[in-house]
Amino acid sequence: MKKRILQLASIVSLVALAIGFYLWNKPPETVEGNEGINTTAASIISAFEQDEQVATKKYLSQVVSVQGTVAEISYDQDSSVVLLLYGTDPLNGVQCTMKDKNIAVKIGSPITIKGFCSGYTTVVLLTDCIIEKEGNNS
């Protein structure tokens, strides 16, 4: 009897340890394989501009797939590629920090980008982005 309890206890603690180890080393979530919320640059921007709280509830930390046009290509201070999609006026836009450092896109090209929404400053922010579709969306 005592042996059974000891056996059971050791199995339970091993499982707990394994779960703990898995959780501790859990890799970051990726956008691949996650369909996400489909939207356009103009509509996600106006959602944040009209009611930031509502838009935050809907989009923050969610996977979002945004259809737009490349307005700017730049690098952040850690040399990640950052694409800006045209907004509804010259001061706004959707700023996408790309996961991949080698990106070949042109200013003015239509594009669909998928990433995690990390909020809104003066632009809508997406991180860990991938290019879902290049060229015209039909």
Partner: peptide, 20 residues
């Protein structure tokens, strides 16, 4: 300065989750 909290990236996904 405007700092989006969800923009902080951690080494471990679990830390990022707890932080947020």
């Amino acid at each position: 300065f405007v700092v989006p909290i969800r923009g902080f990236k951690f080494e471990k996904a679990l830390m990022q989750e707890h932080f947020n």
